[in-house]
Amino acid sequence: MLNRIILIGRLVADPQLRYTQTGIAVTNFTLAVDRPFLNQSGEREADFIDIVTWRKQAEICANHLTKGRLVAVEGRLQIRSYEDQNGIRRKAAEVVANSVRFLDRARDFGSEEPVEGPPEPEFDDVPF
């Protein structure tokens, strides 16, 4: 059996970091993923998919991701049931991420200049 999902999209809001009672970090965020076709009005629509990350990955996402960042998420689909405030049984679908890759560079407080990152590799030194 296989339960694997790969998504590429943009965060619709900053990730929300919290900790379980046992001190394990968990971060939630929503990813906007464009559909591969246009609707009848000729406009592109998107799906809004809830993502959950755990432990060190949760802390990294919370500290380095912000609204609008482009990421790739690989994980598994999880359907969970809960009871709402009115006692009605509900279901929620979310992707539990195994890995989150940052596909763009962070911007420094909204400026157009990218934040300094690691130096680019020197291809003159590659032995092939």
Rank of each mutant, 00 (worst) to 15 (best):
M1A: 10
L2M: 03
L2N: 15
I5W: 01
I5A: 13
I5H: 02
I6C: 05
I6H: 12
I6S: 12
I6Y: 08
L7Q: 07
I8L: 10
I8A: 07
I8R: 09
I8V: 11
G9N: 08
R10V: 02
R10Y: 01
V12G: 10
V12W: 01
A13V: 00
A13E: 07
A13F: 00
D14Y: 03
D14T: 06
D14G: 00
D14A: 12
Q16W: 01
Y19C: 00
G23V: 03
I24H: 07
I24F: 04
I24M: 09
A25Y: 12
V26P: 03
V26H: 06
T27D: 06
N28M: 00
N28G: 07
N28E: 11
T30R: 11
L31G: 06
V33E: 11
V33I: 05
D34M: 10
R35G: 03
P36W: 09
L38K: 15
L38P: 03
N39P: 03
Q40R: 14
G42L: 06
E43K: 10
E43A: 13
E45Y: 06
E45D: 15
A46Q: 11
A46P: 00
D47C: 04
F48H: 05
F48A: 07
F48Q: 03
I49E: 11
I49F: 12
D50I: 00
V52F: 00
W54D: 05
W54T: 07
R55A: 12
R55Y: 00
R55W: 01
K56T: 07
Q57R: 14
A58M: 01
E59G: 09
E59C: 06
E59A: 05
E59Q: 15
A62C: 03
N63S: 12
N63Y: 08
H64Q: 11
H64G: 09
L65P: 01
L65T: 02
T66Y: 02
T66H: 08
T66G: 10
K67N: 12
G68V: 04
R69H: 10
R69P: 00
L70D: 05
L70K: 11
V71I: 14
A72C: 14
A72S: 15
A72V: 04
V73I: 08
V73C: 10
E74G: 04
G75M: 09
R76S: 13
R76N: 04
R76D: 04
L77T: 05
Q78N: 12
Q78Y: 04
Y82P: 10
Y82Q: 12
Y82V: 07
E83G: 08
N86T: 09
N86H: 14
G87M: 14
R89Y: 05
R89K: 15
R89G: 08
R90Y: 13
A93E: 00
A93L: 04
E94P: 01
E94H: 09
V95A: 03
V95S: 03
A97S: 13
S99F: 13
R101I: 14
R101H: 15
F102G: 10
D104A: 07
R105F: 02
A106L: 04
A106C: 02
D108A: 07
F109E: 15
G110C: 02
G110M: 04
E113R: 15
E116R: 14
G117R: 14
E120W: 05
F123P: 03
V126T: 15
P127K: 13
P127M: 10
F128H: 08
